[in-house]
Every structure is written in structure tokens, then in C-alpha cells.
Amino acid sequence: MKVQLYQQYRELITSYLQDKGEDTLYAAQQMSKWMMEHKIPPEEMVSAHAEVLKEYLPNLPKEVSDSFKILLEMMIGYGIALREHESLLNRQKELEYEIEVAVGMQQTLLPNHSPRMHGLDVGVISVPAHRMSGDYYNFVDHDHSSLGVALADIIGKGIPAALCMSMIKYAMDQLDHPTGGPSGVLGRLNSVVERNVDASMFITMVYGVYERENHKFRYATAGHEPGFIFREKDGSFEDMATKGLVLGVAKEISYEEFSIHLEPGDAVILFSDGVTEARVEGQFLGRERFKELVRQYMHLPAQEAVEAMYQSLYEQANYELKDDQTIMILRRPK
């Protein structure tokens, strides 16, 4: 390879010194690319250049040919940097692959479809800002008579949030038949989170149970952005009452339970704060503008509605959403 390289380089130099042609410069660019692909360090080029020059100009002053030794030493550093760069590129590819696997695993933590329950129309959308999400939601079907719903926002984004999410998911799985209702669920999750997370980590969460027979939504919240209730009769919104400390900060916290009665067509709308804190024209979207957005799509079935709301938000935010976005609708059919 060395001999071949040397000959090619000699041809380039000779040709260029004779006619100063643009095409020779282009050929030099191509050769440089080829050399990088073949991991030829820059100092070898300097050495080839010195050899060719000595051959082309037999009377080359000794000072000039000696000076190439300095240039050669200087280029060795660049050669090392090039090899480091390559090894970093390989490392990056490995990390990319690991993240890809983690993204796939995280998907398995979320339900793969909205629950179908007679007497309740459910829609949910959750889109991460980056590859991995810090928003979590879950549905727990209690023998078709009631449906448990959870929506949580884990502080931070990316991998740390995703790891924390798996803890919530498995802690919830342990609560198959929760006693003590929504307050009990949050109380127990709080003690799991409090024992297991870093001091500056916390989770906000809302957990509710919709009872099909009496159309009641009983819920408790742990520091989560309050949701809305949409009232079909006059198209108005009520803010859901909330009270309760975020999960993971203090031991043995009790969470107050609230209850809402849904009339036909009424809906509960839950979301993560990424939605109301989306930046639209330099301002936070805010709760009032989000209500307007919700109102525009309430004529649609719940799943189509949340998808349309997200799409509209994404467009209004100029396709730049910096936080994870989750919107969930539970609606009693008209």
C-alpha cells in the first residue's frame, strides 16, 4: 500500500507542478478521502511528500528536506487525534444501539393500546421530546366494573427518567387489587419511590378510578398539574381539585381523595405539564389556551381527539416541543 500510495502521490505532484490543473487538485481531494478511509495517518503523507520532492528536485536544499522532519513530528499529533475520533465514533455507534434497545424496552412499559370499556371512551397520546420519555401512563382494569388510570411525570428526561419509570411500572404491578383506593395507591407508590430514588429526583402523579356503575371518577394527586373536567351541557371546564406532595420527597404521606360525577358527554382530561408549558410564540401555552385547544376537538371520539390536540400543539409550537407530552381523555358517552 505504501509503494502504491507513494507512486500515486508522485504522479499528482508531478502533474500539478507541470500544468497547475484544477483537475489535479480535485484528484488530490479524492486521494485524501481515500486515505482517511484507509486510516493512513497524516505523517505518512508528509513523509511521502518529502520523498517525492527529493526525487523531483535532486538539488533540493538540505534545509528544506530537513524541515519536513519537523512537519512530520507536528502531524503525528493530528494522526492520534484522528484515531481517537474514530474510536469515539465507534463508541457512539455502540451507545446509539444501546439506546435503541432501551427505547424498545421502554415501549413495553406502556400499555400497547387504550382499554376498551363499555360505558367509557378512552384516548391517550404520549410523545417524548427526545428518544426516551419521562412521562408514564397506565390503565388497570378492575373486572370491567371499574378502570384505574395513572399518569405520571418523572423529573428530568431521557435515560434517568426512563429507569425511574420502570420502577413505577413494577411497583404498580404489585398493586393488582389495590385496597384503600387512589389515596392508598399513591401512598404505597410514594413509599417505594422515597426509598429508592436519588434525593433530587421526584415524580408527580395522578391516579384515578372510574366506576362504571355510578359514573364516578375517584382520584388522588401527588403534586401533579391539575386536570380539567369538561362539562357537556354548557361546554365549560372545571379545574380538578388537587392536594398532595410529589412522590419521593417525604415518608408516610397521606393523599386526599376527590370524587367527580360525570354526566353523559362529560370528560376528564389529564395531561403532563409539558403540554401547558409548551412554548407557543415565545409564551407558555398555559391552561386557558390549552382549554381552547381541547374544546375544538371534543366533538371527536377520545382517541382521535387526543391525537388531533397533540398535532395542533406540535404545529403551534413550531414543531419544537422541548418536553414530553401526554394527554389522556376519559369520557362518559353521550
Binding site: 411525570d153 423529573i155 428530568g156 436519588d198 434525593a199 433530587s200 429526583m201 421526584f202 410529589v246 420527597v249 405539564d273 408549558e277
Partner: peptide, 15 residues
């Protein structure tokens, strides 16, 4: 201040 900032306050409170 966003939730990461709140996390710092919580860390300091706990400590």
C-alpha cells in the same frame, strides 16, 4: 424555574 430546579430544592431540603 423548571422541575430540575425544584429537584435541587428538594435535594437541599432533604439534606
Amino acid at each position: 424555574m423548571d422541575s430540575t430546579g425544584l429537584g435541587v430544592l428538594i435535594g437541599a431540603y432533604k439534606s
